[in-house]
Design a binder for these strands. Structure first.
Lengths: 342, 342
DNA sequence: CTGAAAGCGCTTACAG
DNA sequence: CTGAAAGCGCTTACAG
């Protein structure tokens, strides 16, 4: 029943060396003569030997895999982060353990368990529910010196490196853009205004600050909860109470899509009658008709960078290689849904 | 330096039993007195002990994790399979190792390596490049009795359980639907016509069979390669050579979206001037204007079922619980892009 | 119902 | 440059 698997011992035997030596060539250590190395490599290839990862993990206390927690993998907005993270992991020969949290805190905690069980060397958390409970856990982990990097989520913990986006500046930029286009009646459809969702709060703030800066009084804010249907209704509300609206800024592209539908139903043309600005630049933004002007979040890069930091930490690189937060500024993408008036 | 981690030994000590016994309660074995079990459990909770997965994996030769290979995780079409698979894995307390292949065979092979290294107990492959090289590898794996389930991919190997879709019948159904609506000039925009992409070939076949069955002579097939842009051009071609076309059937929703754009540009209204039928029912289908009539692929269910079969196999369930292929029939979803004529 | 012992397949100082 | 030995933290028959 045993001896079935070829192990490091088999290789050592065949190559006429000790398993210590085999282990050395396996791990690319110095201090092996070229001849020995060659010989061992030959045997390995010949027998198609693959080191057992559990044994390796147990002996070395490292698994070369990282846990990836995502809020919602079917959401194109998030999947792009995953792809960036995955590409980097591949490059560095790290494996990825996936944990799709579906915004449920308990699911997110499962990934922490993966860490505690030694299944993963570190954790990359992309967004997440934003609950206080989770925040507490994350803080706890950080204190235990867990290699943890958080992407696209605001967190008041200096121990945890973050990769984020400047939501205030981006919303400011978007609003200013509309103002410079000549718009003065600009509505803003916001996301979830819960404290944990800093992204939403910050975007509202950027909108407000721009209005103030340019002395525009009409602040029109309607909640859309980052949801297409809700945004549809929010748009109807705006249209009924502000007939003279000329631009609507949505805090996400998905909401803008809902808005477009409402606008269409109301017989309004975009951008002829109303300019529409989105946020995120998901793929859909350039697919729909009219193509959406929006603020582009560098999601792929953020995922990639987050993974890079995590691996740097795992590989024992100096602190500068991972500890500092990175905040991206967003680029404004002009497409067909906005236009200058007057 | 050592003794830092609490291990099974620590628990045994504190609970006044042997580690064998601790292992037993950990694994929920019978043959432990209620009192002992309770005691051990208490200590475990108190010390927040988590068994080390590498040690467990090494000793038991099982990791309780499965490898999930996906062609392209950012593609909403595929991510839904992943979600189904993930949900089932969660239910059964299995972990998922993610391998996003990006259609590159070498990346897909990486997952096979994960298996050979004992990182995963089995593999669930969702779609995939369809290359002969990969097919060979899969066949090889099957011979080695690897627990492998393949979803959304045709494969001539009876050893490998498959979860699939009846593409011929679905395309037939879609075409018949258009014919029954009164259409006689029906173009078909197909995907990649390579041998490996059985889905595309089968859909063309279903279209053809329906035309024949209803004695319609005008077979109009244009390649769209499952790509939006290509489908846009294919549509332009169709419009220029067949002015009297009244319906276009696209082998994927994404292609239909490209077609919609071309139709719009040509000044044609959907469905007033031309009926458009898609395939897949991705989320986008119900979002765009007009909402797309389409054939719905039960992707979530397919992923879920694939994972279920895989786990059944891993858990040693009887063959009926995993060995048989499952072929889903597709449902026709009627929305706004098709209408009866005459 | 419980314990002692062997073993899973590697890595890692320690000698030489 | 190489080998012998101990150890990583569990599971699993085997006894009793």
């Amino acid at each position: 029943m045993k001896n079935k698997n070829i192990d490091i011992y088999t290789i050592a035997d065949k190559a006429g060396v000790s398993k210590s030596t085999v282990s050395r060539v396996l791990n690319n250590k110095e201090d092996v003569s070229a001849r020995t190395r060659k010989k061992v490599l030959e045997v390995i290839n010949e027998l198609k030997y693959r080191p057992n990862s559990s044994a390796k993990g147990l002996a070395s206390q490292r698994t070369k895999t990282v846990g990836l927690v995502v809020s919602e993998i079917t959401n194109p907005f998030f999947s792009m982060f995953v792809k960036g993270a995955e590409d980097k992991a591949m490059e560095e020969n790290y494996n990825i353990m996936l944990a799709n949290s579906n915004w449920v805190v308990e699911e997110e905690l499962k990934c922490i368990r993966m860490f505690e069980e030694g299944r993963v060397d570190g954790i990359l958390m992309i967004s997440g529910g934003g609950s206080d409970l989770l925040n507490n856990y994350l803080n706890n982990l950080a204190n235990k010196d867990t290699p943890l990097i958080v992407v696209d989520r605001k967190l008041d913990n200096e121990e945890i490196p973050k990769v984020n986006v400047n939501n205030i500046a981006a919303a400011f930029k978007g609003t200013r853009y509309l103002i410079e286009l000549g718009h003065e009646k600009i509505a803003f459809v916001r996301g979830d205004d819960v404290a944990a969702s800093a992204a939403s709060v910050d975007r509202v703030r950027g909108y407000r600050e721009a209005l103030q800066k340019f002395n525009i009084e009409n602040e029109i804010i309607e909640p859309g909860f980052f949801d297409r249907e809700e945004a549809y209704q929010a748009t109807e509300k705006i249209l009924s109470s502000h007939k003279d609206i000329t631009a609507i800024f949505y805090a996400s592209d998905m909401m803008a899509v809902g808005g477009l539908k409402a606008l269409d139903k109301a017989g309004l043309k975009v951008p002829d009658d109303v300019s529409v600005l989105g946020f995120d630049d998901i793929e859909l933004a350039s697919i729909i008709e009219p193509a959406l002007s929006t603020l582009k979040q560098p999601r792929y890069q953020m995922g990639y960078l987050g993974m890079e930091k995590l691996i740097n930490k795992l590989e024992g690189k100096p602190k500068e290689a991972y500890a500092e937060d990175v905040i991206f500024e967003l680029e404004l993408i002009e497409r067909e849904s906005t236009r200058a008036i007057k």
